[in-house]
Amino acid sequence: MEGPSHGWLTGLERVVARINRVSAFIACILVLAIMTLIVIDVVVRYFAAAPLEWVQDSSCFMLVFVFFLALAPALESGSHIEIDLFDPLIPASLRKAQRLLGKAITITFAAILLWFVIKYYRDIYETDELSFGMIFVSLWKIYWIGIFGAFMFLVTALVQFLRFFLTPYDPHAEEAPVASH
């Protein structure tokens, strides 16, 4: 599909895909860990009347990781639901522009998210804000994952935009996105 002149993009795509694959894998392990910890907590609390006070808080922090780690992989695999039903209303000649505009908006959103996540992070770092709950942790020790996640989300959106831009548009080649929630 891609012309030889876009080798740089292919290289970039490969790097992004690899990082997303690792991120997704870590997120998977974290979901397993959350499940295991909560089951242990329930069992211990029921049979030994000794709840593990740190389980709730650490599950929450792990979910923050799951979210930000999986954000870009989900974009890559088209798991963020989009709605293709209006496509027939758009003349075929405009459809590439339509899609590019949609992708540009995703890039804009990702950039805004990244910007404000960085701002937020700088703030919790400077104030050394603590979590509330049963365990006290400096939030900056955990929320750095937000910057990573938002950054990868932005880069993945950019790569998708560029690939779509550089590939000749074939209105029949597209598959309907699969929603799953």
Binding site: A49, P51, E53, Q56, M134, I135
Partner: peptide, 17 residues
């Protein structure tokens, strides 16, 4: 909250969030 949790522990109870 954490400090209320510690207080309950000092009373011999356990805190659940």
């Amino acid at each position: 909250g954490r400090w209320q949790g510690l207080q309950l522990r000092a009373l011999g109870a356990s805190a659940v969030a």
